[in-house]
Nucleic acid binder design. Structure first.
Lengths: 143, 143
DNA sequence: TAAAAATAGTTACCATAGATAACTGTTACC
DNA sequence: GGTAACAGTTATCTATGGTAACTATTTTTA
């Protein structure tokens, strides 16, 4: 099936640009959104939790979280283990989450406009399979 | 269809990392491969041709081509319009193209291992549609 | 239980990839 | 022949992420 990567990757830049535009109102980008999304859906979390979820290194998450703290979207809460930094959404963070969630969902719907529902289903099921196949045996820690 | 972006984007980093590993033998990355791929499939081309194809700015392509010239994978050939820089694969470039093409195709096949052929077809047809939907009305010049 | 190993996070530094603005040289147009 | 447009380059900036080395804790283990 030659040409899959091409098709997949040429979608990336337009999409990420669009998403970043969408969130620029809140001085956010998609990389910051991932952190917000994660702690909204998983509750108070440590930086390592988040790093594992997205297969990125710890310093990457340190930076994202620092940015979100500056924006007062997340805050640290006390935890048992003094090594860990447990973070949570602030009230402002919750509001921004909702606003972005709405915008993102609207975009998701609009770009699927002319795609048959079954085809959407297949996309949904297939992408994670492909991801698993790539990560299978690539030496990544999340395998 | 909430969650599409998440599924789509979480595939990106593992994939691009894998591709870059694949090509590191030849000191290439996927961004350089795109240029090689383009001139292999479209014949001698100008930098603007390539920039338009991938929706990136001219300086981006200037740098990629400079890198490929250093690696002696592409060379400039004389053209009518002295403004233009028409580039083509060298013999070395052709060999490297073939080697990478084989590796990439093998990877494409292996990650589609457990995906039904019809589902692969649907992926192939759907991704460009989604891309068109995103680029529709985003102010990009390639619309 | 004291020493060693593992873990969480941070800092400093570097690499990749791409954008914008300003510029040179060439061609097209009127 | 003078102005527009175009192709390419350079310089500078941003965003994102990686690695190595470090501190401060907690866990393991001998």
């Amino acid at each position: 099936m030659e040409g899959f990567f091409q098709r997949y990757l040429s979608l990336y830049r337009p999409l990420i640009t669009k998403l970043n535009e969408l969130m620029s109102t809140y001085e956010l980008s998609y990389s910051l959104w991932q952190v917000i999304f994660y702690i909204k859906n998983n509750g108070p979390s440590t930086l390592v939790d988040i790093a594992n979820q997205y297969n990125v290194e710890k310093p990457t998450i340190t930076r994202r979280v620092q940015r979100l703290e500056d924006l007062q979207i997340v805050k640290q809460i006390p935890g048992m283990d003094k090594r860990e930094k447990v973070i949570q959404l602030t009230e402002v963070g919750e509001e921004i989450y909702q606003a972005c969630r709405n915008k993102i969902t609207a975009l998701e719907i609009s770009i699927m406009d002319d795609i048959a529902l079954e085809d959407q289903m297949i996309l949904f099921q297939t992408l994670p399979k492909i991801q698993a196949n790539i990560m299978k045996g690539d030496g990544s820690k999340s395998e």
